[in-house]
């Protein structure tokens, strides 16, 4: 029992570390290693049957809104829906400028985006125990225990603020571009 519990608690601790933070997880591990009868996990530990996980349904409204913004500012839907095979790179390049400039504007206006890691790509970094596995993805020879040292392949991006327009009640967000009729 004394040999198996640490690895069990270790896993619980890791799960918590994702939800909270490394310090909290370490603290938890420490407390529970001392107390051989952990009360907090009593309800989870004996459960033989895995509980069904309820996955969240995302609402399509915000996604539709974003598509609408990308179409309005960047002609995004027009660009992607078009068959590019028939056109020269120069033609596609010209259109891509419209799309790029507009997408940039949408991102700039509606999101604050910053890299997950501040280090430059290619540099070697060390991930301490309890690192945020939701924000950092390990690849390659993933063995052993933290701290892990490796080379930063991509800095990652994190949205720190989202500012989507507020919608009036009953507004139909599924029309992401109105048909235009000139009178």
């Amino acid at each position: 029992m004394a040999r198996t519990t640490p690895s069990f608690f270790r896993r619980i601790g890791l799960a918590f570390s994702v939800l909270f933070n490394a310090e909290r997880a370490a603290q938890l591990q420490h407390d529970e290693a001392e107390d051989e009868q952990p009360a907090a996990d009593a309800s989870i530990a004996p459960a033989a049957e895995p509980q069904p996980v309820i996955l969240r349904e995302t609402t399509p409204e915000a996604a539709l809104q974003l598509l609408g913004l990308l179409q309005r500012e960047a002609r995004f839907i027009d660009f992607v829906q078009e068959d590019v095979a028939a056109y020269s790179d120069a033609d596609i390049g010209a259109a891509a400028r419209v799309v790029h400039e507009g997408c940039r504007k949408v991102l700039g206006e509606h999101f604050s985006i910053e890299p997950v890691r501040a280090e430059s790509e290619g540099s070697r970094i060390t991930l301490a125990e309890g690192f945020d596995a939701a924000a950092v993805r390990l690849t390659g020879k993933v063995v052993g225990k933290p701290p892990f040292t490796g080379s930063l392949g991509h800095r990652g991006w994190r949205v720190t603020d989202t500012r989507l327009p507020k919608l009036a009640d009953g507004h139909d967000a599924s029309v992401i571009a109105q048909a235009e009729v000139e009178l």
Partner: peptide, 18 residues
Amino acid sequence: VPVVVPSRGSKLIGGSIR
């Protein structure tokens, strides 16, 4: 600086003026 006038219709690539 390149300036692109997008087409009015949904054909973006074919109809733009550069």
